[in-house]
């Protein structure tokens, strides 16, 4: 898939549903997939996340941006069950997520990737992929001992994995240890592996970070294709070109709160956002950003 393909038309149709949405923090969406209310997370004296209200529209690509230390990764962690907020409730596709552990969140269809990719180094690429599939009969120890029970399902999973490897251009690495992949290939693998779970909402934490420019375009294409096949995408990104290129809606966080929402054209002109970037990224709470980086490792 080339980046020059006129995907703009698709972008505009998907974004069309958002044209009437108010461009203010916490604005209601026509068909929210994820709704968060009063999410607060403190570390010691620091309030890392304080999100009053947020709705993520179904079937579009939402970018989550903000200066270092804005609390984006922490917010991801909270939504996906990897961290627990001090206060707040959220529901995903109508299901309350508050008390669910991370693996349950994933089984409900909200799947995330990590800022620092987590390739399972000593498993082969195909094993990485097959791991992603849900509802595997053979994942029970006793049933696992008897191959006839899970063999057929395993073949289906493998076929699905191979198709995805083809799509993500990793088929030639099929039998290699995932640890031997390059940084960009790991990003691709992680995205493909997440797709094996057949998620309805996929949360990508800096999918382009550390990827060489040659791969960036193909990654962007893949992200857009996720939306085009009906999935909802939320991603954290620092590169404004990327945000401009693929996002239908942008949510801006600073110092833990949401300070602006809107399509990228409007965000670029928003004075609060400019202040947040220019004002704080140089002075104040750089430290939280450092924690962010560490927290993801």
């Amino acid at each position: 898939m080339s980046a020059d393909t006129p995907t703009d038309t698709v972008t505009s149709t998907a974004a069309d549903v958002l044209t009437d949405v108010q461009q203010v923090p916490g604005s209601p969406k026509p068909d929210p997939m994820l709704t968060a209310d009063g999410i607060i997370r403190r570390f010691g004296g620091l309030t890392a996340v304080d999100v009053r209200h947020l709705e993520i529209q179904r079937g579009v690509i939402t970018a989550l941006i903000g200066p270092n230390g804005a609390g984006k990764t922490t917010f991801f962690n909270l939504m996906t069950g990897f961290d627990t907020p001090d206060e707040g409730t959220w529901n995903f596709d109508g299901v309350a997520m508050g008390k669910l552990p991370a693996h349950q969140v994933a089984r409900n269809g909200m799947v995330r990737t990590f800022q620092l990719t987590k390739a399972l180094s000593r498993l082969s690429v195909i094993e990485n992929m097959k791991l992603g599939a849900g509802h595997q009969k053979g994942e029970n120890l006793f049933r696992g001992l008897v191959k006839p029970i899970w063999g057929a399902q395993e073949r289906e999973i493998e076929a699905r994995a191979d198709a995805l490897l083809d799509r993500f251009k990793l088929a030639h690495m099929r039998e290699e240890f995932a640890g031997t992949l390059s940084g960009g290939q790991r990003k691709l693998l992680e995205m493909a592996r997440a797709l094996m779970t057949d998620p309805s909402l996929i949360m990508l934490d800096e999918p382009m970070a550390g990827v060489n420019p040659a791969l960036t375009q193909s990654l962007l294409g893949h992200v857009k294709s996720l939306r085009d096949e009906g999935r909802t995408v939320v991603f954290v990104e620092h590169d404004m070109d990327v945000v401009r290129d693929i996002s239908d809606w942008v949510v801006v966080m600073a110092e833990g709160s949401i300070i602006a929402e809107g399509p990228h054209e409007a965000i670029g002109a928003n004075q609060t956002v400019i202040d947040a970037y220019l004002g704080t990224s140089h002075d104040a709470p750089l430290d939280l950003g450092e924690i962010d980086v560490e927290g993801a490792s």
Binding site: P101, H103, R112, L120, E127, G144, R193
Partner: peptide, 27 residues
């Protein structure tokens, strides 16, 4: 028998990176 099964695969995934396994819905 155990380690060639999907169960064994989850085990090894947890060894490699527990959070990645959890993110894929593994307990």
């Amino acid at each position: 028998l155990a380690m060639r099964s999907p169960w064994g695969r989850v085990l090894k995934a947890v060894r490699e990176d527990e959070d990645a396994a959890r993110a894929l819905g593994k307990n």
